[in-house]
Design a protein around this nucleic acid. Structure first.
Lengths: 230, 230
DNA sequence: CGCCACTTTGAGACGTATCAAGGGGGGTGG
DNA sequence: CCACCCCCCTTGATACGTCTCAAAGTGGCG
């Protein structure tokens, strides 16, 4: 049993739709679990017996080909939802990109609970619709954009999604720390690590960004970046 | 007012969750509308005042860049749902690829109705989750597959989705008629029309498929096709 | 029969992948 | 505290695949 009333994502996760009594009932079904950096929570193609909310950390959703190519199809931040309700098997792997903490539920129990709580289901629907929009925009990026456009789009989206949470909102928008290395950025953008690296270098040389360290990015010229993003 | 009880997609669309009285209430809000081949129902970025169910025909969801490149991010068949509930603006354009007929609703009215009918909302959630899975698999295709893998994957998926509906189920699975031309296939796969055409030609030369006409495809060697799809 | 839109084919340019070495930077052990 | 090592990142040279530009071919329809 978990005490949801003090949960760090109490007001942002789908649980926000529940009152105290409902929350207690849900809390009985769930448990907190730590996930280490690099650890995989769900495997593509396996039966997916659990769903979860992310409390802290960042996880990736990955689809792979038989010969080992990987495409990251989603990135999950705190308060986001993980897993496939109403589905038999997981359509992708879920792996932690940082140490993380999740609030985990048995899928069948969760499905039942959701069926009895329309507000929760609506929150889940809204989230899923948002995810679908994001995925579809990413399809445009993957199918039609050049390497430089991909990297620019990526940095802009990351500066938005990362500033939304935790950080000292506002002012510092232009500087942020990526929770991934170059290879993972490449897997997000459908590029190789070399091409990704070259694009970063060129953007630095052109003065569009500063790169104080491997994972830090400062956007100097947001307008030019947006132009480059296509 | 529309009589939903005789609707051709009565049992397949999200309306299937409603009883006679609810259906009558929904019918009052909706109206049938014909959409011509090539006509656009919703524009990317515009306020999206409507949602709809597809009764007949095929429509595409398109995202475009400022300079005119297009990526098809979804294909919509009869009984599928169109539009963005709970959203301010449409994240993509919706255009008919054939003459089509849709059952159209004011979005706000539909949102209200959905809020009062959890079963309908659950159907919508399940559909949205399925769409999201499909979109994510398409991301892998767009980001990581070669032209030949893309075309093979496309033909296999189309043979499934097209045989699911209408047709004399089963036997004829291997032959089907595509509802799109080469350019639109290219826009689905993130390729140019020339590359797409060359892949079709090669697959015909290799005996993998027959192409009795521009839009007809017969898969001769399904196993080889699946191997080629990656 | 001839027009038109769509498709196929060809030749060449371009961008990204691939293969192969060289740098860092951060953490560990001495 | 320094040095070393390992992993990740960068850089370079080349190959390959897809795009681009151009033109010829095909099928449907008036």
């Amino acid at each position: 049993m978990t005490d949801c009333s003090t949960c760090v994502v109490r007001n942002r996760a789908i649980c926000a739709s529940l009152d105290a009594a409902e929350l207690a009932a849900l809390g009985k079904m769930g448990r907190k679990q730590k996930v280490r950096h690099g650890q995989t929570l769900l495997w593509e193609g396996d039966g997916a017996p659990v769903v979860a909310n992310v409390l802290s950390g960042v996880l990736k959703l990955v689809v792979s080909t038989a010969d080992g190519r990987e495409q990251i199809v989603g990135i999950v931040f705190p308060s986001d939802f993980i897993g496939r309700p109403f589905g038999k098997e997981s359509p992708y792997s879920v792996t932690a990109m940082t140490d993380a903490e999740v609030c985990i539920f048995n899928r069948n129990s969760f499905d039942d609970f959701a069926g009895k709580h329309p507000d929760l289901q609506q929150k889940l629907l809204r989230r899923t619709l948002d995810e679908l929009d994001r995925a579809r925009h990413w399809m445009m990026l993957l199918g039609r954009k050049s390497a430089s456009e991909k990297v620019a789009s990526f940095l802009l989206e990351m500066s938005e999604r990362l500033s939304g949470q935790g950080c000292e909102a506002g002012a510092l928008n232009n500087g942020f720390e990526l929770p991934f290395g170059r290879q993972q950025i490449a897997d997000i953008l459908g590029l190789t690590i070399e091409t990704t690296s070259r694009q970063f270098t060129r953007m630095r040389e052109d003065g569009l960004v500063d790169l104080p360290s491997r994972r830090e990015v400062v956007i100097n010229d947001r307008a030019a970046m947006m132009a480059m993003a296509g």
